[in-house]
Simulated scan of single mutants.
Amino acid sequence: MTTTSEIIDFRAETDDGATLHCFREGHGQPLLLVSGLSGTAGFWTNIAATLGRSFEIIRFDQRGIGGSSRGEAPCDIERLARDGLAVLDAAGLDRAGCRRSIMETGGHLFPVSRPDIFTASVAEWIGEL
Rank of each mutant, 00 (worst) to 15 (best):
R24P: 01
D16C: 03
I57V: 14
P74N: 14
I77T: 13
T19E: 15
G28A: 08
G17R: 00
S35I: 11
A73N: 01
R82E: 08
A73F: 02
H27M: 12
G26I: 07
F10L: 03
F60A: 01
A73Q: 04
A73R: 11
P74H: 15
G26C: 05
D16G: 04
R11K: 12
S68D: 12
G42Q: 04
S54F: 15
L31Q: 08
S35G: 15
D15W: 06
F60R: 02
D76E: 06
L37S: 12
L32G: 08
R53W: 12
I58M: 05
F60I: 07
D61Y: 04
E72F: 02
G67I: 07
I65L: 14
L51D: 11
F60Y: 15
T14C: 01
D83N: 06
G71P: 04
G71H: 00
N46G: 05
A49S: 13
L31A: 03
G52L: 09
V34L: 03
G42M: 04
T40R: 03
G66Q: 06
S38A: 13
R70S: 13
D15G: 09
D15E: 15
A41C: 09
S54I: 08
I47H: 04
G36R: 15
A49F: 14
G71M: 04
G39R: 00
S68I: 09
A41K: 05
E72Q: 15
T45Q: 14
D83Y: 04
G28M: 14
L32H: 07
E78F: 07
R24H: 06
P74I: 06
S38C: 10
T45E: 15
C22M: 10
C22I: 12
A73C: 04
Q29E: 14
L80C: 02
E72N: 15
H27K: 09
L31S: 03
E25P: 09
L20N: 01
C22P: 00
Q62W: 03
N46K: 12
R53D: 15
A81P: 01
L37D: 08
T40L: 07
A49D: 15
F10V: 01
N46P: 05
R11D: 14
E56V: 06
A81W: 09
F23T: 08
E56M: 08
R63P: 05
A12R: 01
I47D: 05
E25Y: 10
P74E: 15
G26D: 02
H21S: 11
I57H: 08
D16I: 00
G39I: 13
P30F: 02
A49N: 13
R11I: 14
I65H: 07
P30C: 01
R70G: 00
V34M: 14
R63H: 05
D16R: 06
L33E: 00
D16S: 07
L31P: 07
G17C: 04
E25K: 09
T19V: 15
D15S: 13
W44I: 05
L80D: 02
G39V: 10
H21D: 08
R79D: 01
D16Q: 11
